[in-house]
Simulated scan of single mutants.
Amino acid sequence: MKRRHLLASAAVVAGLAFPAMADDPTKAGFIYIGPVGDHGWTFTHDQAREALEEHFGDAVETSYVENVNYGPDAERIMTQMALSGTDIIFATSFGYGPDVNNVAARFPDVAFEHATGYIQEADNVSLYNARFYEGRAVIGHIAGKMTETNTIGYIASFPIPEVIMGINSAYLHAKAVNPDVEFRVVWVYSWYDPAQEAAAAEALIEQGADILMQHTDSTAPVTVAQDQGIFAFGQASDMTAFAPESHLTAILDVWDPYYIDRVQAVMDGTWEAGDIWHGIVDGMVGFAPMNDAIPEDIRAEAEEMIAAISAGEYHPFTGPINRQDGSAWLAEGETAPDGDLLTMDFYVEGMTGEVPN
């Protein structure tokens, strides 16, 4: 298996170049916002990269750089990848959008894939995302049924549409089964910062939360939950090992099939830019094993919701739903258009606090 780790840090990658190879494999490069050991978002992308290697063997060579900041660092690394003969580059964080498009415009023969992106200015930029809000509807239902204090804590990263829609989806489904439930949200303005995430978890517990959710990547929140004797949901991967008693389940990010499919398209010469948003039915959103602490009837209800979403029989954003200020958003039976979700910048009715600018 041919694999090259570009470098552990973006700060020292500038002079990198790949040697020419006589029998060139297809080269796939990955840039990550966090460390591969975060056990969250970046971890799942890197697990999928390894699955890519296993699937194709010596026909594919992968490389990655972790801890890549948005802006000049990202542009420099992707430029080096393209100059070094990389055939397809996966930029795996929302904030890389401008960087991806700037570099792609200079390298029209390289395929660029941007995870959770929305900017598609160059013809060789493809967008891909997962409908995580589907999974958050399920964990919201579980949390609403299981909370005893009626207070659920949510550790949020950045106030972008993906995070806001996740909060709203979880809240709506907790509220649907428990009218007394309240959500308390702490914004940490980081995707991965164990110390901040732990502090946020402790603050939420002090405010009465007996169940924690997170849209951040470290295992700190579930570890704090375990120490404090409350429940929590993991993020992106199965975090059960870090909090076996407290970890109820986690929404799983399953990137393997998509990466294999897109690299295969490059190998076949059939790759085209696209814009996909896959969910439970496509296998891009999954669930970690459910803890035995979840009562059997609640587990059955959660599984029924998963099946209904997968079958297209239920959409987590189905009206009537109002905005936080009481103004109408979705009428009875109306489902949210993708465009509304992908630009969501408001809380739904019943949520307290404000969405930060």
Rank of each mutant, 00 (worst) to 15 (best):
P257S: 03
I294N: 14
H315T: 00
D256Y: 10
G274S: 15
I260Y: 08
W271L: 07
E304C: 00
A307Y: 09
G279N: 04
D292H: 09
A311S: 11
G279L: 00
I280P: 10
A273H: 14
Q264C: 07
G279Q: 00
A300V: 11
D282H: 10
A273W: 09
T318D: 08
A265Q: 10
A300W: 09
S310W: 01
A300R: 14
Q264W: 11
G283I: 14
R262V: 02
W277T: 09
L252A: 04
Y314S: 09
D292Y: 07
I306V: 15
Y258L: 03
D282C: 03
N291W: 06
E296T: 13
A311Y: 00
E304K: 11
V266T: 09
Y259T: 01
M305A: 08
V281A: 15
Y314G: 05
Y314C: 12
A307G: 12
W277P: 07
A311P: 05
A288V: 14
A250E: 00
V254Y: 03
P257Y: 06
A250M: 00
A273T: 11
I298L: 05
A308Y: 02
P295T: 06
V281M: 08
A308M: 02
M267V: 04
D275Y: 05
E272W: 09
P257I: 00
A300N: 11
E301V: 05
F287A: 04
G279V: 01
T270L: 09
I276C: 09
W255D: 00
T318R: 07
I251S: 08
W255N: 06
D275N: 10
E304G: 03
G279C: 01
H278L: 14
V254D: 08
R299V: 02
A273G: 15
V254P: 14
G312E: 05
E296R: 13
